[in-house]
Structure formats: C-alpha cells, structure tokens
Design a protein around this nucleic acid. Structure first.
Length: 496
RNA sequence: GCGCCCUUAGCUCAAUUGGCAGAGCAAAUGACUCUUAAUCAUUAGGUUGUAGGUUCGAUUCCUACAGGGCGCACCA
C-alpha cells in the first residue's frame, strides 16, 4: 500500500507536479466558504474561494468526481469536472489519495441535494500522503455525522495522536476546548491582577506535595536534580518578594502509577494571593469555575454541539461541608475520639484494604474518602481538615486541632486543594524536620528540610491563600471525559 | 501490585466441537458527468502478538512472556 503511493510520487515527478508545496493562499476556510454562499443562492454560482485541507472522502464518477476536504473549521464538498479542468489535469486526479493535503480554487455553488460545494476550477497538491490514514466512513444521520469503523484502538489513538486528530473532528474539538479553558483561566487571573510566572521544573529538593519524584542528574554541576512534584514552595518565595499575586500553569511530575485519572506528568495550576485566607480563596475558586465553564460552553468553534451541552452549570456558592462533623455523621460516632482498634474496625466495615497496617491519619483519611468524598457529586467544599492530615496549612482560628484547608470535590474526585498558607518559619521548620525523619525512615514521598525556603520565610512571609487545581481533571469534569489519557495530547506510554 | 478480559489483512471485525483463515472498508485495475457509508465488476493483501507445549492436525486447548483494556488497590 505504501508502495502504491510511492509509485504515484514517481508519476507526479514525470508530470512535473511537486508533491510537497511551500504555501497556499487561502481566502476562506470550510465554514466561511459555506457561509459565503448564503442561504437562498439557488443554482447561481456564489463567490470564488480558495480553500485548503485534507482530502477525506472521494467519489469518482468517470468524468466527474465529488470529494470532501476537511480543515480545522469543518468539511467542504468539492466537485471536479473533466470539462472544467481539462483532460490532463482531470487525469492527474488519479494520483491523489485520501489523506493528501490539497488547495482548491473555484466558485461555491449549491448541488441538487442542497450542499454548498466548490466547483473546482484549479487545484494544487500541497502534501502527498504516503501512508494511508485510518479513515472511517462518515454517514449523515439526522444532520449529524456518524462515524463508521474508523480508528478505534485506544492505544493506537493515544500513540498516534496526529492520526487520531486527523480523522476525528470531535477529538480536535475536545483539545480546542481544553485550550479555551486554559485561556479563560489566564484571563480570569490576569483580570484580578495576578501575574503569570515560571518557576524551576528542575529542583535540587522536591516539596509542596507528597509524591515520589523523578530523579535526574546534572553533569556539569555533578548533582542530582528532581523534576518538580509541585510549584508551591517557589511560588510562595515570590510572595515573600512582594509580587503579591502569582500563578503558574505547568507540568508537575510524579513517579507513580498510571491509570484513568493519573498520568506521570500532568498540568497543574497553582495561584497564591497575599493577604487572603482560605475563605477568600473559596470565593475565587467558585468564580474561576463559573468563568472557565462559560468559556468552554461558549466556544463557537465547536463542531460537536454535544460537548457544549455536557459542560456543567456551576451555581455558587457551593456547599461547605466540615470534615469532622461530616465524617462523624456518616460514621455514626465521634471519629476523633475513637481509638485505633475502633477506627480499624470501622475501616474494615467500609472495605478499606490493609487497614491493619495504616497509620491513624491514613485510616481517618480512608474512612473519609469512602464515606463522604465518594458521595459528593455536585461541587462541594470540604473544609477544616484535621491537623494531622494537613501538614502545610495554618491552624484553624479557634480550634487548633483543625487546619484552614479546603478541598473541592465533584463527581467523587478532588478538583482543588487549598490552604490558608503556613507563614510561621519556626512552625515550618518543625514540620520539615518531621518530614525529614519520615524520609530517613524510608518514606520516599516525604521531602527534606528546604533551608532556602525557610530563609525566605524568615524574611517575613505575608499571610496568603493558595490554591492548586489539576487542569487535566478539571477539564475532564467540564467535558465529561472519563479517561485522563483522552484529555492529554501525548499521554505517557510504554515505547512500542 | 491483585483479578478478569483482549491481541486474526492498513482499519473495523468474523471463523460452528480442534479440521483448507473470511467479510466490509481502505488499496490496485476497469466502467460511470450531481454524488455523499456512491454504485458495479475484477485483483491483490496473512509467520492469527512472541516463545514453547499437547495433538495426525491449533486462530481455537495448556504454559510463559510482551503489549493493551476494564475493575480494585495505591496516589494527603
């Protein structure tokens, strides 16, 4: 099959046709060409257009041929006639294949069946497709394109995202929508006087979360470096420096399992606002979600209307659920006063595995996940986590056994994690040292003492609220996607 | 990490109890001047994921391995 297309290259060369062009001057895309014809054009030829795209369907009938050209905006029918193009140019159409990138020029008209179509006066080959794309057949049922037996293998679609995108307009839509969402986030934060910054991906110490890092090595400095697991500690240094409101959108890396909600590198948004606490940040998160959902829903480029319909409508304020009372009422007991054996018994009742080996905070967390988090379908803030679960948050005013922390849950998944950020360097050192002890005892997820960060905090760190939002998961929620692989252009995979 | 399932033509899938490996699309050749999953005729296309085993005979049964999917666990 590849051979047949190579042979066509030779024939093209014999006819003096260049198979790979340099440019093509377009006047319209598929959508605007159709719009340019207008509604009531009848048989009268409409405006001349020059469009370019990939050849995705071909129906030859001897001395005429119909085809479809696809570009980013949609599909456009082409009509080739021998009497229009001349015998030589018409015969050269035999050297075209599905998947070729071509440019065509001619007037738009309406066919007998009413479809806006370019009556091709001239065409140019812009790029020869030497490898067949796995096109399916598209059938129009009730005005909607239905794809038949195309490129279904989920693994190959992820590996060859270029082919997946090339043959699936709805996949293109999804990633365009993701880009719109990220743009909306930037607009939202820029509009509130945040500045976007870039902090190191390669870090001599990792921190800001609990996760196993990827380790690499710098040759010239002869030192280990870690790919960041979070942006947190660098962004908070910038608050010390007086930038007051900062955010970063970038990749974090965690050396952990891959499943339908985890990819080893993923996109994280973190933002920090000086002089704000976690209550302020809840309000910011609500407004941010409304704004991003609106942006995705309103994306005019979506050919797939069902995507816009899937975007949930947020109606703030979201319910606030306090961690301890929520767990107690689900458990029917005062969790914080239960001893370990009672907690483990409760864990076993709800199906927590290896409950006998878990520490007290882990059992509490597992109970909460099973009994409360998994039940939270509508967006809900869980607030005021026990201190033992939240080493990075400030103690709660009025109840030092709790912390000023919230997590946002929707459809049973964590969407955001935020604190009134700890800004007491003496307290911070104690917590770092506790982490370092865990690490020395073999916990690879624990971080060490970050002396430089402590130095920054000792200069005086304003109080601040900080929020982390997983962009991939947020987009999964907005788009109704169930697999993280389907919202990452090139997900991490084993080599072929 | 554990359990279940999958791997056959470029793509999507068949193959009866273990008995000559098939179809549609894509491809090639030909016919066709308003088609749209175009149609019609002809042709070509395979180390059935890999390595072993059982058997007269394996796509089919068994073992191991590789890759993938789903579920569970882990991931504050």
């Amino acid at each position: 099959m590849l051979r047949a297309r190579r042979a066509k290259l030779d024939q093209l060369a014999e006819r003096g046709i260049a198979p790979f062009a340099y440019r093509y001057e377009r006047t319209h895309d598929a959508r605007s060409a159709i719009a340019a014809l207008g509604e009531g054009a009848g048989d009268a030829p409409g405006p001349e257009v020059r469009v370019a795209g990939r050849l995705v369907a071909w129906r030859a009938h001897g001395k005429t041929a119909f085809a479809h050209l696809a570009d980013r905006s949609g599909r456009l029918q082409l009509y080739f006639r021998q009497d229009e193009l001349g015998e030589e140019r018409y015969a050269a159409l035999d050297l075209l294949d599905l998947g070729d990138v071509i440019g065509v020029a001619g007037p738009v008209f309406r066919t007998r069946t009413g479809e806006a179509t370019v009556r091709v006066a001239s065409y140019e080959l812009l790029a020869k497709s030497l490898r067949p794309l796995p096109f399916g057949k598209e059938e129009v049922v009730d005005g909607r394109a239905v794809l038949h037996s195309g490129f279904a293998d989920a693994e190959q679609r992820s590996r060859q995202r270029y082919a997946d995108l090339a043959v699936h307009p709805d996949v293109r839509d999804l990633f365009v929508a993701r880009s719109r969402m990220v743009s909306a986030i930037r607009r939202f934060l820029d509009g509130r006087d945040f500045i976007e910054v870039e902090t190191p991906v390669l870090q001599p110490l990792y921190g800001g979360a609990a996760a196993r890092p990827f380790v690499t090595h710098h040759e010239a400095l002869d030192m280990p470096l870690y790919l960041r697991i979070a942006d947190e500690l660098y962004l908070k240094r910038l608050i010390v420096g007086g930038l007051e409101r900062v955010y970063e959108i970038g990749h974090d890396f965690r050396n952990e399992g891959v499943d339908r909600t985890h990819n080893p590198e993923f996109t994280m948004l973190e933002f920090y606002q000086a002089y704000a606490d976690y209550n302020d940040m809840m309000t910011v998160v609500e407004a941010l979600l409304v704004s991003t959902a609106d942006a995705v829903r309103a994306d005019a480029s979506l050919a797939d209307a069902s995507l816009a319909e899937r975007v949930p409508v947020f109606r703030p304020p979201f319910p606030r659920v306090q961690w301890v009372p929520a767990l107690n009422s689900a458990l029917g007991a005062d969790a914080m006063s239960l001893d370990m054996s009672a907690l483990r018994a409760a864990g076993e009742r709800v199906g927590v595995e290896h409950v006998a080996t878990l520490s007290r905070p882990k059992v509490l967390d597992a109970l909460f996940q099973a009994l409360v988090e998994a039940q939270l379908d509508a967006p809900t803030f869980v607030i005021d986590y026990p201190r033992e679960l939240s080493p990075l948050a400030k103690p709660k005013r009025g109840d030092p056994s709790l912390t000023e922390r919230f997590e946002l849950f929707a459809r049973g998944k964590e969407m955001a994690n935020a604190f009134s950020e700890l800004n007491d360097p003496i307290d911070q050192r104690t917590r770092f040292e506790a982490q370092a002890a865990l690490r020395a005892a073999g916990d690879q997820e624990a971080s060490g003492v970050d002396e430089d960060y402590l130095r920054a905090m000792e200069y005086g760190m304003p109080p601040m609220g900080g929020v982390g939002i997983g962009i991939d998961r947020l987009f999964m929620y907005l788009s109704g996607t169930t697999h993280i692989r389907d919202v990452i252009l090139f997900p991490t995979m084993r080599p072929e």
